[in-house]
């Protein structure tokens, strides 16, 4: 029974999520849908960090690109692209992917930056991205853009907004699809390649693999998923602003993934939801102490629990 525990837990979690609307009221379901979006963001970082071993301090850059694109499109600020939310979502993902590709191309080209250097460059990039967003009036400058419309039901004629449940199921469907995709990738030979790159990058070249191309691909895919999460975020929260591309959010998602467990996709996903949920519960009471607790929790996890809180019990692979 214990050997199959991770499988049962994994299936159990998805079943619970599917059944959640039966037990939760509208407001809580909306909240859960928002948590799912954070979870999606966490999945993207878990993929690039846990699977490929690339530590990125600026993953929010791509999340923010997706969020901004979604807002700009649905608010009609980019008339050439129309106002459709689906365009917004798709272009948000594509934008995140393109941004990630560009940054990765720069960092990995030539001899490529080492892990630590790369991490620092992504940190600086996140800081600069936030500063740039604050100065760019077209995208709302310091205040960002408000009044982003919620998701619209495509199957009604009056452009009625999706109900809370419908929004929830849409987000859940997207999240499940992405999760399955990433799971399939990690089971393929490409997933083995990423694990090898994470473990001993140089050795992997001597087996004939083009390591740089593999990292580029992984980074771009992670960027796309971050962008997708950003687009969904904006549609649910109704706004976008510069902190969404900055190092603050980038650090938060790092904490979620580290606490949840970076090596196991579902663990990172659950970690995001868990941390966010605890934050909701405690931040009123703790106020400023919450962030302090987070910082200390992060140190604790890094030193003592590098697998994260849920890494072991949700690990579907038979080894380790």
């Amino acid at each position: 029974m214990t050997r199959r525990l991770p499988l049962f837990l994994t299936i159990g979690i998805w079943v619970l999520l599917l059944l959640a609307p039966l037990a939760l009221d509208d407001w809580r379901i909306s909240q859960l849908a928002q948590f799912l979006t954070y979870g999606l963001f966490a999945l993207s970082l878990a993929f690039i960090w846990g699977q490929a071993g690339i530590l990125c301090f600026g993953q929010a850059i791509f999340f923010g690109i997706g969020a901004y694109l979604m807002a700009l499109i649905t608010l009609g600020k980019l008339p050439l692209l129309g106002e459709s939310q689906w365009t917004g979502i798709i272009l948000g993902a594509v934008g995140g992917g393109v941004g990630a590709f560009g940054l990765a191309l720069f960092m990995l080209g030539g001899r490529g930056l080492s892990g630590a250097h790369l991490a620092i460059v992504t940190l600086c990039a996140a800081v600069v991205a936030e500063v740039a967003a604050q100065r760019w009036d077209f995208i709302g400058g310091f205040n960002g853009l408000l009044g982003v419309p919620p998701l619209v039901a495509p199957y009604t004629r009056d452009d009625m907004f999706l109900s809370s449940n419908e929004t929830y199921f849409l987000v859940l469907a997207i999240v499940m699809a992405v999760y399955l995709l990433l799971l399939l990738i990690s089971r393929s030979s490409f997933g083995t390649l990423l694990a090898a790159i994470r473990s001993n990058e140089n050795r992997t070249r001597y087996f004939g693999f083009d390591v740089t191309v593999a990292k580029l691909f992984a980074f771009s895919l992670a960027g796309m998923i971050s962008g997708l999460a950003g687009a969904l975020f904006t549609a649910q929260f109704g706004f976008v602003s510069p902190p969404l591309v900055g190092f603050g959010l980038s650090t938060e998602v790092l904490i979620w993934v580290a606490v949840g467990g970076r090596e196991v996709l579902l663990a990172a996903f659950v970690g995001a939801i868990f941390v966010r949920w605890v934050e909701n519960l405690l931040s009123d009471k703790l106020g400023q102490y919450w962030l302090l607790a987070m910082g200390l929790m992060f140190i604790f996890v890094v030193i003592l629990a590098p697998r994260g809180l849920f890494g072991r019990i949700l690990n579907l692979s038979k080894s380790r």
Binding site: A116, Q288, L291, L292, G295, F298, I299, V302, I303, P306
Partner: peptide, 20 residues
């Protein structure tokens, strides 16, 4: 890499302590 992460956590904690 763990050092980067741990000291990053530390920076968050110190900053927050100062804010408090």
């Amino acid at each position: 890499i763990d050092t980067i992460l741990a000291t990053w956590g530390l920076s968050i904690a110190i900053k927050q302590l100062i804010i408090i």
